[in-house]
Simulated scan of single mutants.
Amino acid sequence: MAAARVPMLRHLLSSQTRALRASNQRRWAQVHDVRFLATTQQPRNILEKYRHKLEGKARDEGHADIDSLKAAYADKIQTLRRETDAVTAPLATPPPNTPPTPHSQPQQQQQQQQQQEAKKQPFSSSSSSSSPTGIKPLSQILNLPKASTLPTKELTAIWRLHHAALPNSLCATIPASTFTVMEDLARANPQFVLPVPHPEQGAEMHFLQWTWDAATRSATVLFTQLAEYKARGEFAAPHTTVTHYKDLMGPREGEEGREEEGVVLMQGTVVEDRGVKVDNARWLVMCLQRFYGGWDGVGGEGGKVRAEERRRLLEWFGRGDGRFSVDKLMEEAERMG
């Protein structure tokens, strides 16, 4: 059953956006050629606006209709058009080798200075997305050439500071080797369920789905309440979206010229009014990292045993193995609390 649910959440965000846009469009909406509206409609509207006055002037001067009036004034109209064309003619374009004027030099220098300053900034000013999935590339969030030169400690501080003012955001910096382990397990087991404990109400189950976007070199996890998913299927909307950017996974130069391990930058968003608090989303992200091998090796020999148990639960769920049980999942989650 879990395998049958794979296509349902793969493009959930994009399908929800398309459905919303479609509901706001009227069925009789038409597409018009803007050039046609600009060059053809306007003269006809002017003629209709002044038709009554033109017909009156034609009668006063003894003409049968407006066309006869236009023919009588044809020479005058042509003269006025030539005078108007002379006034609105474009300025001559200087030859390519013409040196810049004294006034243009400070402007060029200012533009060059602005470009150089932009390269020094860690964050990019671009806001549009070039991916069909709607995921914004990291290059439109960070100035990658600048970010790639920063030590991991400084890059982490900047990344956290960037998200500090957003109350519904999540962020993290993950070592490249750690994320490699997580991604390998995710590709083999892209769906799983995780509990969120509520002291007074037991625990609430959440369904997660991994997706990948080659255009942005990212891996995204969608979290949805399991009850919501069971009730609405492919129409269930995620309450939290977490995207991992892999652009900076290569080795980097650290402090004092020492080589450091690459990193993966993670950022997430918790949607308001979906019944999930930011603290709940943080817990889910921590569980995600634990069950997908992000914390393997932590805790000595006992930690290795627990990591192996979590991995078995992950694989059993992916295969639909009967040995998977919610009780065992809850036990492992409680050990992490």
Rank of each mutant, 00 (worst) to 15 (best):
M1L: 13
A2M: 11
A4C: 07
R5P: 00
R5A: 10
L9D: 01
S14A: 14
R18F: 11
S23H: 12
S23E: 13
S23P: 07
S23W: 11
N24P: 00
W28A: 10
R35W: 06
F36T: 12
R44F: 10
N45W: 13
K49P: 01
K53A: 13
L54D: 04
G56I: 08
A58G: 10
A58W: 08
E61T: 14
G62V: 09
A71S: 10
A74Y: 09
A74C: 09
K76E: 14
K76P: 01
Q78I: 13
T79A: 15
L80H: 12
L80C: 10
R82Q: 14
R82W: 07
E83D: 11
T84L: 14
T84E: 09
V87S: 02
P90F: 08
P95N: 10
H103D: 15
H103Q: 14
S104Q: 15
Q108L: 14
Q110L: 13
Q112K: 12
Q113P: 03
Q114C: 10
Q116M: 08
Q121L: 12
P122T: 05
F123L: 12
S124P: 02
S126Q: 12
S126G: 04
S128W: 11
S131Q: 01
P132Q: 09
S139N: 11
S139A: 15
L142T: 00
L144E: 04
K153G: 08
E154G: 02
R160L: 08
L166W: 04
N168F: 04
S169C: 05
L170Y: 01
C171D: 00
A172I: 00
A176K: 04
V181M: 05
M182A: 06
M182C: 14
E183W: 05
D184I: 08
D184Y: 13
F192H: 06
P195I: 01
P195C: 05
P197A: 09
H198T: 13
Q201R: 15
G202F: 04
A203D: 06
A203C: 08
T216K: 05
R217I: 04
S218M: 06
L222F: 13
A231M: 09
A231C: 09
F235S: 12
A236P: 01
P238V: 06
T241K: 01
K246W: 01
L248P: 00
M249N: 05
P251Q: 07
R252F: 06
R252A: 11
E253N: 11
E261Y: 04
V264H: 02
L265K: 02
Q267W: 00
T269Y: 12
G275K: 08
G275R: 09
V276M: 10
W283N: 02
L284Q: 01
M286G: 03
L288W: 03
Q289P: 01
R290I: 03
R290A: 12
F291A: 00
G294S: 09
D296W: 02
G297W: 07
G300H: 08
G302N: 06
E308C: 02
G318F: 03
R319N: 11
G322Y: 03
S325F: 07
V326P: 01
K328C: 07
E334Q: 14
R335Y: 05
R335F: 04
M336R: 08
